[in-house]
């Protein structure tokens, strides 16, 4: 799979640019490029539903992030707390890499998924009349998960409305 390797290298380059560059707007644009590359990667990995969803979500989150950063590109200082920051970074990265090493040892080789659970889903879904198995899993077999997702979205929107409204309490004089 040379295509997915090339796309991953492109994504890593975009992420490095997004982390290193000083200007906030350039950083947001670079992370948008990473998201579009992820959408292409989903298409290569035979997941067309995910590619469409990722494209829409990426455009929306890019608009939101640009709204947050437009005309506010203030350079930030790097002085103070250097040893604590660097040591915390090293500790967290080492912890993550150690856990990932043990997790990767138990993974099957790339390209040979086990499909122990989804085999049952695939054999049952023609009886339900579903052609697209991802839609069948989301709306039939795991509909409660989708209900939870809708709940999370609603809660987040309520939170945004509560945080971002302009009107405060009126003081009684």
């Amino acid at each position: 799979m040379i295509e997915i390797n090339l796309l991953l290298i492109f994504m890593i380059a975009g992420a490095l640019i997004a982390v290193r560059v000083k200007d906030l707007l350039s950083s947001v644009i670079a992370v948008g490029a990473v998201g579009i590359a992820l959408s292409l990667g989903f298409l290569i990995l035979k997941a067309p539903d995910l590619a469409m969803m990722q494209l829409v979500v990426e455009i929306l989150s890019l608009i939101i992030l640009i709204r947050a950063t437009i005309r506010k590109d203030i350079p930030f200082s790097m002085s103070g707390g250097w040893t604590f920051n660097t040591s915390a970074t090293i500790v967290f990265l080492a912890l993550f890499l150690a856990v990932a090493f043990f997790a990767l040892k138990g993974m099957p080789v790339f390209g040979n998924a086990l499909m122990r659970v989804s085999g049952a889903y695939i054999t049952q879904s023609p009886a339900l009349g579903a052609k697209n198995i991802v839609a069948a899993i989301m709306l039939n077999f795991r509909a409660l998960d989708t209900l939870g997702e809708a709940t999370v979205l609603f809660t987040a929107i309520v939170g945004v409305l509560a945080v971002a409204r302009k009107i405060g309490h009126k003081k009684e004089s």
């Binding site: 035979k46 997941a47 499909m115 989804s118 198995i133 991802v134 989301m138 997702e149």
Partner: peptide, 19 residues
């Protein structure tokens, strides 16, 4: 065919990431 179960899970996770 590829495994459809991770795709269904990730479809949920993408929307929650937007939120």
């Amino acid at each position: 065919m590829v495994d459809p179960l991770p795709q269904a899970v990730v479809l949920t996770a993408i929307v929650i990431g937007l939120a």
